[in-house]
């Protein structure tokens, strides 16, 4: 028995979510009284996982540079068999949610995504995860000898626990990929909805795409990702990639700022997992105020420029 944390990288560097999944894996190993190691692909700073209590990392380099789910899953499955890992930890990124079901099929493992805490019991292993798009939690027991736990973004957090970390390069023989990458488009240098600490989101209350500079400027000051409500993307004011909510992207960030968004149940379902929610809306009866932590009843066209100005001053003070 052992715990294996699957670490994601980008341009050879660990992704931000590495700290959270590593911390979860180390915590789980302590609960199960077993050891914890990690596996990463194309990484030149894997030793920094030592900061979060990981003492051993296997680094794989003989796979495609870009994330290729089939070859990555096959490599991990071979490593799992090699080190006899029984509990795999993955993040909630788009890539992790691609990889985990493929791995589950290969290992005949139980996959439980969107887990928010360490197990409440170890025999049988029982974890709490979100269900009904954040409207409830399900306490789920896991059967079988192998499991894959998907940690919800920003639910467990990073826990510093410095140890020395031994990095070993490993080579496996994965089967060839079933898919060919034709192209990839990715905004670089901009925070994404999945990994930003702050998300600034605009709704129909902003009246039209020409007013989105308000959202973008506020996002820039806060180093935030931008998002929008469903009608905004349906009307083509913003791209579909920004649509958040039950039928769009889920958001579980530290700070979610909703501007001119009424707070329909389908919108809330997708963003409720965010820790702190701020609502700016001219209608004091907007349902979003019931789900928010902080609110400003006011006209976005007055409040947001003021907020941008004051935040710039605040940031300038450091």
């Amino acid at each position: 028995m052992s715990v294996l944390v699957i670490i994601e990288t980008e341009k050879n560097k660990l992704k931000r979510n590495a700290a959270e999944v590593a911390s979860y894996g180390v915590g789980l190993a302590a609960d199960l009284k077993t050891s914890c190691s990690a596996i990463a692909f194309h990484s030149d700073n894997a030793d920094s996982l030592g900061q979060f209590g990981i003492s051993k990392v296997a680094v794989v380099s003989n796979v495609p540079m870009h994330f290729d789910a089939n070859t990555y899953a096959d490599t991990i499955a071979q490593h799992v068999q090699q080190i006899k890992a029984t509990h795999l930890i993955v993040s909630s990124s788009a890539d992790a949610k691609f990889l985990a079901p493929l791995l589950a099929a290969k290992l005949n493992a139980a996959y439980v995504p969107n887990v928010v805490a360490l197990p409440s019991a170890t025999n049988p292993l029982t974890v709490k995860r979100t269900a009904f798009t954040n409207k409830a939690f399900a306490n789920t027991t896991i059967e079988g000898s192998c499991s894959i736990i998907g940690v919800g973004n920003n639910t467990f957090g990073a826990i510093e626990n410095p140890v020395s970390c031994d990095v070993q390069s490993v080579v496996y023989n994965p089967s060839t990929s079933l898919l060919e990458q034709v192209s990839i488009e990715k905004e670089t240098g901009k925070a994404t909805i999945a990994d930003a600490d702050v998300v600034v989101s605009g709704g129909r209350g902003l009246k039209g795409p020409e007013n989105w500079h308000l959202i973008e400027e506020l996002a820039e000051v806060l180093d935030a990702a931008t998002a929008c409500s469903k009608p905004v993307s349906d009307m083509g004011w913003r791209s579909h990639d920004e649509h958040v909510g039950q039928t769009g992207k889920p958001v579980s960030t530290n700070l979610y700022i909703a501007i001119g968004i009424s707070g329909a149940i389908q919108h809330l379902a997708g963003v409720n997992a965010s820790k702190v929610k701020v609502v700016i809306n001219s209608d004091p009866e907007a349902p979003f105020f019931k789900a928010a932590d902080y609110g400003v009843v006011g006209d976005a066209f007055e409040v947001v420029p003021e907020l941008i100005k004051k935040l710039k001053a605040f940031k300038a003070l450091g």
Partner: peptide
């Protein structure tokens, strides 16, 4: 099946929103 939902919980009720006047950002 490899998993079973043994019980459900609803999120704890939320504290009331703190409203800030629009002229006091």
């Amino acid at each position: 099946a490899l998993t079973k939902e043994v019980s459900f919980e609803k999120p704890a009720p939320k504290a009331a929103v703190k409203l800030v006047p629009a002229d006091d950002i």
